[in-house]
């Protein structure tokens, strides 16, 4: 023990500090990393907007590809826009109820420590980590070769109606893929709701289900919306899962039934980049198609970011 009483250290001025090189280097390097990422993002977006904007026209997005798929002056992307929109909307119809109900179960009913809850959580985490091409294989192995063929066996005898790639199978495959996105976003918004609100409702004699339906869910709506938008944006750009489950290289007609195949924006980008006989000639239409796809996905992302930011601000005020 330092028994030398009142030997407080002698006065040292606060200013005797040299230039802090380590601090400068560290902040510089991490700042540079941040800057580089943003710069790459801007280069990609700028490149596509600049080169794609030049060949984008109203005619391009409102006509089909009847004559020459690789010529920007003749071809258009309407069938692809319709195909992508259809598969994504259908997917939303499948995934939203399941995802929201799963999130409700996890936040409102499940005991957070129970083994079963842990298994659901790890299943959701694992689902989020499954490669998209494996979803494609799953769609083919399960929806088409198993469900589809059995459906045909029962409904159509020897005809093949459901046992082949189709709009509905692509949508279902994407729904399985985006389930974690919806669950996570919904759960976040449900957890942010103060438990006082639930208790107040229960104290008034409402049942748990009434409380969830009338108090909890309306509050969670922005979160559910964010989840849906993120799922749509994720699914809209995915190509690997629909390669074997529904996308078509070329279709003369627009899809009208659930069992039809469809043309798709992302898949079309892939075809234009890799199957073109003359890449220089294809370049304009390729850029224009990419621009349409990017506008769709990035716009959805930006909307999701804003909805989420507003939701978080509102919830902070509530608490």
């Amino acid at each position: 023990m330092s028994a030398t009483a009142s030997t407080a250290p002698a006065l040292r001025p606060f200013r005797s500090r040299r230039f802090d090189l380590a601090s400068f280097v560290f902040s510089g390097l991490t700042g540079l990393a941040t800057f580089l990422i943003i710069a790459i993002l801007l280069v990609i977006l700028g490149n596509v907007i600049y080169s794609g904007g030049a060949s984008l026209s109203w005619r391009f997005i409102t006509s089909g590809t009847e004559s020459d798929m690789f010529d920007v002056r003749k071809a258009g992307v309407l069938p692809m826009i319709i195909g992508t929109t259809a598969r994504v909307l259908l997917m939303t119809i499948f995934v939203l109820p399941v995802g929201v109900i799963t999130a409700i179960y996890l936040t409102e009913y499940a005991a957070s420590t129970s083994r079963f809850t842990r298994v659901i959580r790890s299943a959701i985490n694992n689902l989020a980590g499954v490669p998209s091409i494996v979803f494609g294989l799953f769609g083919l192995g399960f929806f088409i070769n198993f469900i589809g063929q059995h459906l045909d066996g029962v409904l159509h005898g020897t005809d093949t109606v459901w046992g082949k790639p189709a709009l509905v199978w692509a949508s279902l495959t994407l729904a399985v893929m985006t389930l974690p996105v919806v669950v996570v976003a919904t759960e976040e918004s449900l957890r942010a709701i103060p438990s006082g609100l639930r208790e107040a409702s229960l104290a008034l004699g409402a049942t748990k289900l009434q409380t969830i339906a009338k108090i909890v869910l309306p509050q969670a709506l922005p979160g559910i919306l964010t989840g849906a938008i993120l799922a749509i944006s994720r699914a809209a750009g995915e190509v690997a899962p629909i390669l074997f489950t529904g996308a078509a290289y070329y279709m003369a007609d627009l899809p009208t039934r659930l069992s039809d195949q469809f043309m798709d924006l992302g898949y079309h980008v892939f075809i234009l980049s890799t199957q073109s006989p003359d890449i220089e000639k294809t370049r304009p239409i390729l850029y224009a198609t990419v621009l349409v796809l990017l506008l769709l996905t990035i716009a959805l992302n930006v909307v999701a970011i804003f909805v989420r930011a507003r939701m978080r601000r509102n919830l902070r005020m509530l608490q």
């Binding site: 006065l11 040292r12 001025p13 606060f14 200013r15 005797s16 500090r17």
Partner: peptide, 15 residues
């Protein structure tokens, strides 16, 4: 503190 204005610009926070 010890006669030195700690909110002056030259003060080094770490010190």
């Amino acid at each position: 503190i010890n006669g030195e204005d700690i909110y002056s610009k030259e003060v080094h926070l770490i010190e």
